[in-house]
Simulated scan of single mutants.
Amino acid sequence: MPENSGQPTHHYVLTLQVPNGRGLDVVTFSAAVTPPQGWTRQQFYKSLYVELTSKYDYLKDANTLFWTLESNQL
């Protein structure tokens, strides 16, 4: 197989849950990304969580149900 230079190095899945007044909303985000060099998984998670909960007001106090960050290469 050809080398995938220029492709994102990692893939993440983040599932959040937040009360909506009638029950719970659950939302999942996923993408292929290249984290900043030298970052830890925890740093990337915290940055992503803050970015998403700031961008979408209704997720302000969301709880994490699932989180993974893995190599994008098979």
Results as ranks from 00 to 15, higher is better:
1 M>V: 11
2 P>H: 13
2 P>S: 13
3 E>H: 00
3 E>L: 00
5 S>R: 13
6 G>V: 11
6 G>C: 12
8 P>I: 08
9 T>H: 02
9 T>K: 04
10 H>M: 05
10 H>I: 04
10 H>Y: 03
11 H>D: 01
12 Y>T: 01
13 V>M: 09
15 T>F: 03
15 T>A: 00
16 L>K: 03
16 L>V: 04
17 Q>M: 03
17 Q>L: 08
20 N>D: 15
20 N>P: 07
21 G>Y: 05
21 G>V: 09
21 G>D: 10
21 G>H: 02
21 G>I: 07
22 R>L: 15
22 R>C: 14
22 R>M: 14
22 R>Y: 00
23 G>V: 01
23 G>R: 01
24 L>T: 14
24 L>C: 13
24 L>A: 15
25 D>A: 08
25 D>Q: 03
25 D>M: 09
25 D>T: 08
25 D>N: 11
26 V>S: 07
28 T>R: 05
28 T>L: 05
29 F>L: 07
29 F>W: 06
29 F>E: 01
30 S>M: 06
31 A>L: 04
32 A>G: 06
32 A>I: 10
33 V>I: 12
33 V>Y: 01
33 V>K: 06
34 T>K: 05
34 T>I: 01
34 T>S: 03
34 T>C: 02
34 T>R: 02
35 P>C: 02
36 P>K: 12
37 Q>V: 11
37 Q>R: 10
37 Q>P: 07
37 Q>W: 15
38 G>C: 05
38 G>I: 00
39 W>G: 11
40 T>R: 04
40 T>S: 11
41 R>M: 12
41 R>I: 08
42 Q>P: 05
42 Q>R: 05
44 F>M: 13
44 F>R: 08
44 F>L: 04
45 Y>S: 02
46 K>Q: 00
46 K>N: 02
48 L>E: 08
50 V>P: 01
51 E>Q: 15
51 E>M: 15
52 L>M: 09
52 L>H: 12
55 K>S: 11
55 K>R: 13
55 K>P: 01
56 Y>H: 12
58 Y>G: 04
58 Y>M: 06
59 L>F: 11
60 K>Y: 11
61 D>Y: 15
62 A>T: 00
63 N>M: 11
63 N>E: 13
64 T>H: 14
65 L>F: 05
65 L>R: 10
66 F>I: 04
66 F>Q: 13
66 F>K: 09
67 W>E: 03
68 T>Q: 09
68 T>V: 10
70 E>T: 07
70 E>M: 05
71 S>V: 08
72 N>D: 14
72 N>C: 09
73 Q>M: 01
73 Q>C: 06
74 L>V: 14
